[in-house]
């Protein structure tokens, strides 16, 4: 299938509007790119001459570095812009920032923003490819893809698996991208969280709502455990982190009730002892570091495909000699 037939489009703002085939192409291409990061010289000339801006309006370590590694390993030229609250306060609007960047003739923008819809907003206003690195509580598509890839790596498939997302669904872009990706690839999806952190109407997306973590563990093949941000407690969604851990924390004792070999995912950064206990995070079920490794491969695949690379040429592209 050619990219034209797949019509991946100019941008990646979310998984909601992708087809299962399009998602598979991202995953298959990522599979091909994994090997680059295992080489002694981790660099191929796939994106040589391309200029990519990592535009982060929100603090991020993992995602930003993962994108940066992916870009550098594909030989792109990259610039990182981290706008703190204080420089945004200088008054330049999102669209002006983007247009100024574009005036410097860039090819792609990787954007992280605290407002839902910011990536789409940008994508509609500039000619460069826009990759959403997380917008508000909307989507974080590359995280969704790397979670899918990790599940596929360890279970050989996604279809038919029971995957439960645990924690703050309300504020989570990771949850939404996971829900769309998992549903499209045929998984059974559940969410488990205090009702205060569950977005209204979530069941209408086609997911099951589980009230207790014990139920989730008994049901699931995969648990994707989300970070509980301290601010949520301060805002009163949960009375205390201690109680959250006691009621919703994924612990070794609780995992003993699992009906089958369970995979534990976590998008990071973890709050050890809150949503996940250390003996689980560091235990044999944990896929957390595999997710991080896959993150780089997934982002390489996304950059490559959006830059116009054809899926079937990925293998050839990464073995091409640098001139």
């Amino acid at each position: 299938m050619t990219q034209r037939a797949l019509a991946l489009g100019k941008d990646l703002v979310g998984l909601e509007h992708l087809s299962a085939e399009q998602i598979q192409v991202f995953l298959d291409t990522a599979e091909a790119f994994k090997e680059i990061s295992e080489r002694p010289i981790k660099k191929v000339p796939v994106l040589r001459g391309k200029t990519i801006v990592n535009l982060f309006f929100e603090p991020s370590t993992r995602t930003r570095i993962s994108f940066e590694f992916a870009e550098k390993r594909l030989s792109a030229d990259t610039v990182n812009i981290a706008t703190t609250a204080s420089s945004v306060a200088k008054g330049e609007t999102l669209v002006d920032t983007a247009r100024n960047l574009e005036a410097m003739r860039i090819d792609m923008v990787v954007v992280r923003h605290w407002a839902s819809g910011a990536a789409k907003f940008l994508a509609e206003r500039i000619r460069s490819n826009v990759i959403n690195a997380g917008d508000g509580a909307h989507e974080h598509p590359t995280q969704g893809l790397l979670d899918l890839l990790t599940i596929r790596d360890h279970r050989g498939r996604v279809a038919g698996l029971n995957v439960c997302i645990v924690g703050d669904i309300l504020h989570s872009r990771v949850a939404r991208s996971n829900i769309w990706g998992l549903l499209k690839l045929g998984a059974n999806v559940a969410v488990c969280s205090p009702k205060t952190l569950l977005p209204p109407g979530i069941a209408d997306l086609g997911v099951t709502v589980l009230r207790r973590i014990e139920e989730a563990i008994e049901w699931a093949d995969v648990l994707n455990v989300l970070r509980l941000q301290l601010e949520r407690m301060q805002a009163g969604y949960v009375p205390s982190l201690r109680e959250y851990n006691r009621v919703f924390g994924v612990s070794k004792v609780r995992l003993a009730r699992a009906q089958r070999e369970i995979l534990i995912l976590h998008p990071g950064p973890m709050n050890r002892g809150v949503e996940i206990d250390s003996d689980v995070a560091d235990g044999p079920h944990s896929m957390i570091l595999a997710q991080v490794t896959n993150g780089v491969a997934v982002r390489m695949a996304v950059l490559y495909l959006l830059a116009g690379g054809e899926p079937e040429k990925a293998e050839a592209a990464k073995t091409a000699e640098g001139a």
Binding site: G136, R176, G201
Partner: peptide, 11 residues
């Protein structure tokens, strides 16, 4: 409602 949930916007 559902639209807000999908868009990640607070309802």
């Amino acid at each position: 409602g559902l639209v807000a949930t999908r868009l990640g916007l607070r309802g």
